[in-house]
Design a protein around this nucleic acid. Structure first.
Lengths: 178, 178
DNA sequence: GTTCGACGTGTCTCTTCATACATGTCAAGT
DNA sequence: ACTTGACATGTATGAAGAGACACGTCGAAC
């Protein structure tokens, strides 16, 4: 259900086509809410049928730019204020860590090093983004201010994971099991 | 696919029934990898068909205790060392934060306070768990050592989110939009 | 003129997961 | 004797999501 609101929220910021939105998911939203084009196009059609968005203009190659409607804006706001937050997290890397005792120590060392590197780099990516925002590269519209808050969550989250993976490397390995 | 390995990993630690495993997901794993009983029972039957687990004993009320097989242990190890880590994260609260600019400031304040409280409490839960482990309540088997590592991730992660939600409350609200 | 890469929208199929429904057992308290 | 709550395992249905397949367009480089 969240993808529906993600699209609605993005369109509340500015009109966009399915292709535009797919790019944004790929480049910006992938780390917090991934979505592929089949799902996006499908959901856009459902949103249009429901009258929450409408076609703003059509362009070359069948491009359809959508715009949010008043009903859509109201629905987005309703979601934000009335729908309970879904705090479900599904973190495969943490699930794996529960079974580290099954791994050979050398494999585990390599694994944790890769984990730390990945998370540190992801955090750095968010930080770069934050620096650009703070530097005014994107202006200071309300949307940009909210995005800055989201990015801060990304920084803190991925740094926490990087710190964890580094810390885990200092924990003495258990005897290997078979 | 991960649930399959979650069950395999848990059974590598000790034999358990579907009911036992459901309880563990509810009480311990819910915050990092939720799973409900229909999925668990279904997956257990598939694992048994594949010869990765087998029935250890049967008890009252149709209770079936499963035990991991050698093939299952090998498969779990293969997963841990050969399968690429899936670092996909899908965090609805962070997605929401992207659209905070659509909310009325007073609603947002209340929302962030609730977020901070929730994450702080979740972190405290993990910390309590960690303290028990460190206090030796659960012994110091290799499984417990791994779980201690996982718990540390939980602590760091949820504290990061709590810090974020508290920090976000200090960010001056944007002008309300309609 | 052709080729190539980005642009652009869609369908089909399969897996995963959530929710509701369905069924029955056993122990303990009243 | 009866009721209640925990124990215990399943099925049915539908939504969400991933990956493959499918089709067509436009601009730029060669």
């Amino acid at each position: 259900m969240s993808l529906r609101y993600a699209l609605l929220g993005l369109l509340a910021g500015e009109p966009a086509s399915g292709y535009d939105l797919t790019q944004r998911f790929e480049k910006q939203l992938g780390l917090i809410w991934p979505a592929k084009h089949p799902q996006i196009y499908g959901e856009l059609n459902k949103l249009a049928d429901a009258g929450l968005i409408e076609i703003d203009s059509e362009g070359p190659r069948g491009r359809k730019v959508y715009r949010i409607t008043d009903a859509g804006r109201a629905e987005a706001k309703r979601w934000l204020t009335e729908e309970p937050v879904d705090r479900t997290a599904r973190l495969e890397p943490l699930l794996r860590s529960l079974f580290y005792w099954l791994m050979d120590p050398e494999d585990l060392r390599a694994h944790l090093a890769a984990e730390a590197a990945y998370y540190r780099q992801a955090a750095a990516g968010f930080e770069q983004f934050a620096a650009d925002k703070d530097g005014g590269v994107y202006g200071d519209s309300p949307q940009v201010k909210s995005m800055r808050v989201t990015i801060e969550a990304g920084v803190k989250l991925y740094e926490a994971l990087a710190d964890w993976a580094e810390w885990a490397q200092t924990v003495p390995p258990a005897e290997p099991q078979d």
